[in-house]
């Protein structure tokens, strides 16, 4: 394995894991449910994509032929992360989780909740 590729793989690995750590810090630190929804859906997805690209380069060099298998996981995660985030947001609205008081436009959340439960005034 040439030095250049080794540097590329190492940088991608460390960069990806730093982004994933930031996502988890956001999950642990941010003040309420809906803000906590932001950090993992974005940061963890990009972080794991970096690590998968690094793995792709590494195995392409090691096995001696083009190895694109990790692209499948990356694409799958990129497609499913927003869907999971949408479902989690819906579940949060349904559960009436607490929001911090500085949240603007809380009537919209109320409206979306009433739409899920038309008979609950």
């Amino acid at each position: 394995m040439s030095v250049f590729l080794e540097v590329v793989v190492s940088v991608l690995l460390v960069f990806g894991s730093i982004i994933m750590l930031i996502g988890s810090i956001g999950l642990a630190k941010l003040p309420d449910y809906f803000t906590r929804l932001h950090a993992p859906t974005k940061a963890s997805t990009l972080g794991v994509a970096c690590i998968l690209v690094a793995s792709m380069i590494f195995f392409s060099v090691q096995l001696g032929h083009v190895n694109l298998k990790e692209v499948l996981i990356t694409m799958f995660l990129l497609i499913t992360a927003p869907v999971a985030a949408h479902m989690l947001g819906k579940a949060g609205l349904h559960y009436k989780v607490k929001m911090i008081d500085s949240t603007k436009n809380q009537h919209l959340a109320k409206k979306a909740y009433l739409q899920q439960h038309p008979d609950d005034k």
Binding site: F34, A81, P82, A85, G89, L93, Q115, Q116
Partner: peptide, 12 residues
């Protein structure tokens, strides 16, 4: 796209 881009998550 809205969910994956800066600071927005589609909720409902």
């Amino acid at each position: 796209s809205v969910s994956l881009t800066p600071g927005t998550v589609s909720v409902e």
